[in-house]
Design a protein around this nucleic acid. Structure first.
Lengths: 377, 377
DNA sequence: ATAAGTAAGGAAGGTCTACTAACAAACGTG
DNA sequence: CACGTTTGTTAGTAGACCTTCCTTACTTAT
């Protein structure tokens, strides 16, 4: 039949156990300290099973007993258990920028403990990998708690195993980054596209945990990460979210559409990327600048309306320079999307800046580890 | 934290068993008769476990022994087991048409055994439900094999439990169709949006089993069903795929954009729906008609390009009248999408008519049952 | 023709996991 | 102070899969 069968995961005997373990951790992570009995109710497991799982998690040090709950209700007072989110660290690296590799040591809640940055100084290929490895070692040394793993958000197309299929700006082609770094550092390493990590971060830590989220990252280029029905969209060739090179400007009366680095004309990047925006606004007074930003917002809205409709998104968040995005651009984009979609789709849509600010991609890299190692999303 | 926790399914003790059972059935369904040892290799379960599962499936009558394999290899010859796809029936109903309810009795491979249709004669609301129930009874009586379940593809917004949230054309609002019919007919009933069932049918039976598929249904209106990473996209309010009312035509020099039934202007339905297309072509000679169809194809391509890019789709299939769609319209749409997306995204895209033809939605309704009852996707 | 190697399928026994049932502890309430 | 309520634990049970070992049946090499 020529049909591509997806690699359906087999159900090992311990599979159910791992799933239930993740559910317990997930609840503790998102809802804070909880009693075993409450966990049992939330997960619809029995109290016995939950006690067993909690005991195992305590043995691992991931969870701790926190004493009796203060509130006075009838019956035996519950003793709370909580996740030790501050007693473990995660190393997160954001490679989105072309000039700097930015990294951080974070707690499991995404609080930054230490930062390190390294200038790329034009290094690409293997040299860039070596610089990245050094940065990771540096960060691992800076952590003073056990490190759960390393999460990396990188530009380019990256498959689900953390192999960089292609990242032209770093001259990486088919580089098994996750596997190599994991072997070199002896720590679990997870790698994903930077826009995808941004979406993941916003979804898990930024309060966008609804059902349809897209995060648009605006920097040197434009990228997008999409979370639908609770899962990151990968796409046919792991290239989902590559919105930067969709044509959005047609040749018109003003002459031909602007030329893009990719060789075609009128790509979204030629109007929305930061360099393009800065060029466009250079020398304009504020009022004229606002008009230009609104024009970009409208173009963006026209392109996003079909996507918002097709996926029935509930959240659309932006990451990038506030001074450019968070004003007429976003307002016009939102208005345009609403004008161009069904009321039920457009009215529900919430559109705004990423609540995690500059650190979205970094937080997302941390969430990548949480998700990969502990099953928390 | 205000975060909406998805209803994470708990892992029952029998959960793994059910999963493995589905995997075995899935392989037998898609790959045909297979030996137990081959099944074990494909599922990465042990031969013992597979034998056990196969024995259970044989006891249920879903699977049968087919004797030794002809091919001569070393070692003990394998005895093949196969799924008894012709010994069970599924009832499928397509409610997409405003005038007719079309139903069929099908085998598990989607072959039609019997057809029944009922004119709606303007019936809506409860009367339409009663007519549907009668049609189902009729079809159940026409089946001469055990019936696994009933699958229904209906217009409107439908949640994952098979409740019609809203279907204005039928005057259905919050009708628990699946639950009610299941109780009335004493058979499992599954209901989904007709465009979604079309996508499901094309995905499972139409050879579009890649990783990103969108099916566009063009009839009275325009709808879309999307399968990404192997799962149907539901969307925030179960309204994913509602592409018919995205604005695609702007007011221009030719005057204002055409008015849509929804009250706004320039919706996709005002150019792509069948009535609109017929009106547009009325009285034109073939050459002029082709120009018009190409113009519609271009408008469609412009709207689809961002969606194709965002999801990195690999298949884009159309269901509707061949004479209108399968010509300049599709050719131009494909060319437009390719012009307006990155080469890696657009070049990989395969675009064409649904391979299941008229029966896409019907086959999809059958797949809905296969998926819901047997875990086959 | 006979021995050796290979593969399929089944039987026995072990382990893991989560469930049910029953119970002790600790607290409000009448 | 007795009682009901809720929590968390102990003990026993059932399900599901695994590993190991065996028989069967065929191809291939000597």
């Amino acid at each position: 039949m020529g049909r591509v069968l997806r690699p359906t995961a087999k159900a090992l005997p311990g599979h159910a156990r791992a799933h239930n373990r993740s559910m317990v951790l997930q609840h503790l992570f998102h809802s804070g300290p909880t009693s075993r009995a409450d966990l049992a109710r939330s997960t619809s497991l029995t109290r016995v099973t939950v006690s067993d799982l909690v005991a195992a998690l305590m043995a691992e040090g991931l969870v701790e007993e926190l004493g009796a709950r203060a509130e006075g209700k009838v019956g035996k007072p519950a003793s709370l258990v909580g996740m030790r989110t501050q007693e473990f660290h995660v190393v997160a690296v954001d490679l989105a920028d072309d000039a700097w590799m930015r990294g951080a040591v974070m707690t499991l809640t995404g609080d930054v403990v230490a930062r390190r940055s390294v200038a790329l100084d034009g290094r690409v290929g293997d040299a860039a990998v070596i610089a990245l490895e050094d940065l990771c070692r540096d960060l691992l040394a800076a952590a003073d708690r056990p490190v759960i793993g390393v999460g990396i958000g990188s530009p380019g197309v990256i498959d689900s195993l953390g192999t960089v299929v292609e990242a032209p700006n770093r001259d990486w082609y088919d580089v098994p980054l996750a596997a190599d770094l994991s072997a070199a550092l002896d720590v679990p390493v997870h790698v994903a596209n930077d826009a995808n990590t941004a979406a993941l971060g916003e979804f898990t830590l930024g309060g966008a945990g609804g059902s349809g989220l897209m995060v648009l990252t605006v920097g040197q280029g434009v990228g997008a990460g999409i979370v639908v029905d609770g899962a990151l969209v990968q796409g046919h060739r792991h290239a989902a979210g590559e919105l930067g090179h969709v044509t959005v400007v047609d040749d018109g009366v003003d002459g031909p559409a602007p030329l893009c680095a990719c060789g075609r004309r009128g790509c979204l990047e030629t109007v929305l990327a930061v360099p393009a925006l800065r060029r466009r606004l250079a020398g304009l007074d504020p009022a004229a600048a606002d008009v230009e930003l609104a024009a970009v917002g409208r173009v963006l809205g026209v392109a996003l309306a079909p996507v918002v409709s097709a996926l029935n998104l509930s959240e659309l968040r932006f990451s990038g320079p506030r001074d450019l995005l968070d004003g007429p651009l976003l307002r016009t984009a939102q208005a345009t999307v609403q004008q161009r979609t069904m009321p039920v789709v457009g009215a529900d849509l919430r559109l705004g800046m990423a609540s995690l600010g500059e650190d979205v991609a970094l937080c997302g890299a941390a969430v990548l580890v949480l998700s990969g190692q502990l099953g928390i999303t």
